[in-house]
């Protein structure tokens, strides 16, 4: 059995900056409860701008739950309760003055299962800009749609059938469509909840390529079950276990030279 040493005393995980990087999201002692059950215990972590951070850990460790705190998606679950502070550019996102709708425009999200709207490809992309009032003219929408689809590296595959339903695309294409949809509202942060778990290896490779490209401009946080994937795409990796943040390091260090015994056990495949 792995002993649980770190949960009693919260530690502040900062992970050495790779370059001179700026903190985008900073959380302090975040607790999440589902009713009486505690899903996340005192997680404090700094996530850096224009970098990819991966959350890994066995199923049920709370990594998705924690991810969904970062854009307040947990608000939609009645029994979920979040405590502690989460700062986005220094501002507390759980402050009553912060509108979750505005927050989610800044912190976009891509889900585990590709979930395009049952509308045309064009409307899937144009929906976000439309509700936020980012454009009014048809030609502006056309530009946004093309830009987003190009960013998500799917433009060439769909440019001739923008009026066809997004649900008719293949799984990998759907997921890139969802990424394009998230990019269309000009987010600063992109949260990805196991974005490749429903995709085949080729589609996965395409999405990973895309992540590597997108990190030039966006702060990306990705939850993954696949440790190879974390190793391939992430600058830093955080290991969660049973609701605790066990270790947070640069990816190379975490995989090569983990500080905690639990981390080593997990990445070497001894449990999880």
């Amino acid at each position: 059995m792995v002993t649980d040493s770190s949960s009693t005393q919260p530690i502040r995980e900062t992970a050495r900056p790779v370059h001179q990087e700026r903190t985008k999201i900073s959380t302090h002692e975040v607790d999440v409860f589902y009713g009486a059950a505690q899903a996340i215990r005192k997680v404090s972590i700094d996530l850096y701008e224009k970098a990819v951070t991966a959350f890994i850990g066995p199923s049920g460790c709370g990594k998705s739950t924690f991810l969904r705190c970062l854009n307040r998606m947990n608000d939609t679950i009645d029994v979920a309760r979040v405590e502690g502070t989460i700062l986005l550019d220094g501002q507390d996102i759980y402050d009553p003055k912060v509108d979750p709708v505005q927050l989610r425009a800044r912190v976009g999200m891509v889900f585990q299962k590709p979930n395009p709207f049952p509308k045309s490809i064009y409307d899937n992309i144009a929906y976000g800009p439309r509700i936020h009032g980012l454009a009014t003219r048809k030609s502006d929408f056309d530009d946004i749609v093309e830009w987003s689809l190009r960013k998500a590296a799917i433009w060439d595959e769909v440019k001739d059938r923008l009026d066809q339903p997004g649900t008719g695309l293949s799984g990998g294409q759907q997921q890139r469509l969802c990424i394009a949809r998230a990019l269309a509202v000009q987010p600063e942060v992109l949260l990805m909840d196991e974005p490749c778990s429903a995709l085949d290896p080729i589609a996965t490779a395409k999405v990973e390529e895309l992540i590597a490209e997108m990190k030039m401009e966006y702060t990306i946080v990705i939850v993954t079950h696949n440790m190879q994937q974390a190793g391939r795409v992430a600058d830093r990796t955080a290991f969660f276990y049973l609701g605790d943040l066990i270790e947070y390091e640069t990816t190379a260090k975490l995989f090569m030279n983990p500080r905690e015994e639990q981390t080593e056990a997990y990445i070497s495949g001894r449990f999880g």
Binding site: M73, T76, N115
Partner: peptide
């Protein structure tokens, strides 16, 4: 399906939208 609600919420739609 909840995935449709999440998708809309994820791009910043309000509950009403």
């Amino acid at each position: 399906p909840p995935s449709i609600r999440e998708a809309a919420l994820g791009v910043g739609a309000s509950k009403h939208q």
